[in-house]
Amino acid sequence: MSVFMDLNITAGTDKAKLQSTIETAAHLGYSTVAINYVVEGQKKKQLIPTPQPLAELFETFPTVQGKSRPIKVLNRLTVVATDASHFRPTNEYKNFDLLAVHPKTDKLFHAACMNYDVDIICISATEPQSFHFKRSPVNGAIERGVFFEISYSAGIRDPTMKKYTITNAVNLISVCKGKNVIVASGAEAPLNLRGPYDIANLGLIFGLSEGDSKAAVSTNCRSVVLHGETRGTALGIIHTMKRPQLPTEQPEEEIPAAKKAKTDDGSLIV
């Protein structure tokens, strides 16, 4: 059985609420969650938040239901873009494990699908979509391995939002044919979360097939996390990092004499 993930838990100001939300997620059987920080593009010079260190959040992470491992928590940044200037890849974006963009216009959606270096493209759940999903950018996104996210918690809170969520989701899924879709909660409170099996079944309303809707909470999310990991590397092949400071003592003394081989010019080959 595959593991379940919920890649959108809204980071509020209330730490206790976030803690209990993550605990509930662990209880429901999600083995990975991502805390979502949102940046609204419109406001001038809004600072990109720095993610809260995870060690501060929990002393010991709660154990996942049905597994013996603790829950894995990631950080995620969502950029709400209404203008092309809002999405500027800076170094601050690198503090986050996952990067998502929420395009509000047709042009930005096209750019997000084809060019932007992101993991997730969010689909609006609280308002009617102002543009149609076209096949060519969506296919481009699928080819690049970028995923589309449907969040369900707004729909649970409010019947009007539910209408918009379902409309937008069905619109998207008819275009992308059920491929590269993830369903995440977007929950602010523990009572907005739902169990993974319920969500897998809820996908049937959105027009996903049984296999696709299960993949939307499990294997597709895994692909997103892996995509996020490879974003910081060169094509997922090379990864550069700072070397930790070595202890001052020279390693030469540690090597036993038997293992040293002397060459003709006297240099050591270890």
Partner: peptide, 29 residues
């Protein structure tokens, strides 16, 4: 499956005219 898809939208149970917030989590079928 159709009836199950309605279960995630339960947010509360009415108990003697009092609203108790809760949610249903399916564990087995």
């Amino acid at each position: 499956q159709l009836l199950w898809s309605a279960l995630p939208f339960i947010t509360s149970i009415w108990k003697q005219g009092q609203r108790v917030p809760c949610f249903f989590n399916c564990i087995h079928v």
